[in-house]
Simulated assay, not measured.
Amino acid sequence: MRSSAGQSPERSSLARADAILACFDDAHPTMSLPAIVAATGLPKTTVHRAIEKLLELGWLEQQRINGAIGHGRDRYAVGRRLFEIATLAHLRTDLREAALPYMEDLYEATHETIHLAVLDGVHVLYAEKISGHRRITDLSRVGGRMPSHCTAVGKALLAFGPPEAVDAVIAEGLDPRTRTTITSPVKLRAELEAIRLEGVAYDREECDIGMACVAAPLFGPDSTCVGAMSITGPARVLRLDRLAPAVRTAALSASRALRTRVE
């Protein structure tokens, strides 16, 4: 079993496990052994041994196709054990629980979809979601990631986060998802400055055609931005200007509740 220079076998094993788990995303909720080998670039025997251990730990689950076993026909999915562990994360026990009552208030007032997200590198990670009466995109599932530069929650997090986070997003490239996505670093920085002044961020069909969103930041005890809350719905009916005060008030209330929880 080959290990990278300077890495112990245990650390190398964890790196391989992480590489395998990173193969799964919204587009690939299940994967075959050959697909995992191709995605990781690791030897087939190494991946097979790692998968056997991950199955034993409950970090992966096996799904058999038509009862067939082996020969690349089995598919794998992220296991329930990882979900159980994730529910204990600080993100869910503090930020989520502080924000959820105010998310529910927003839902009752609007019956639109309400999101809670945090910044994860150059992406936003959705920590909670209350689905509205109207069906919208499934891209914002809990645990899912989206680019931060074209989402309202992402822009709120960038506007009130550290400057290096904005630099990292721009360095990564402002890929267009729709014709209205901001792809200019100058325009993005100007919008983030406007968000800091107004206290809310908008997504006007920048992430998904037909969808609009308004978001506001949540702050922790040390006044750092720790999350963002949003209202999302069809662009043709959502009045973002009317919803902005509501989401800003809810985010401020959640921030106060979070400070109370952790002080």
Rank of each mutant, 00 (worst) to 15 (best):
L95C: 04
T180D: 01
T40M: 01
L218H: 08
M211Y: 04
V200E: 03
D241R: 14
S140G: 14
M103K: 05
I51F: 01
G161K: 08
A171G: 03
A159Y: 05
A228M: 13
R49E: 15
T45N: 10
G72A: 11
D208E: 15
A35W: 06
V166P: 04
R92Q: 15
V122W: 03
G72N: 05
A168M: 01
M211T: 10
E206W: 07
D26M: 12
A194K: 11
A246I: 04
R248H: 13
Y76I: 09
D222L: 10
M229A: 01
L82G: 01
E104Y: 10
A250E: 05
F160G: 02
S13H: 02
T181Q: 06
S32I: 02
P221Y: 02
D105A: 13
L197T: 12
G72I: 08
H28C: 11
V124W: 00
L54N: 00
L192D: 00
P163K: 06
G154E: 11
Q7I: 11
T249I: 14
L125R: 06
A216D: 11
A201F: 09
D167Y: 10
R49T: 11
E128P: 05
D138G: 09
T232L: 15
A201Q: 08
A244P: 09
H90S: 10
Y126S: 03
R92L: 15
P217L: 12
Q63I: 11
T180W: 12
R256A: 14
G58C: 08
A165V: 00
T249K: 12
V186Y: 02
I170R: 04
H71Y: 14
V214E: 10
G199R: 07
L54W: 04
L139T: 05
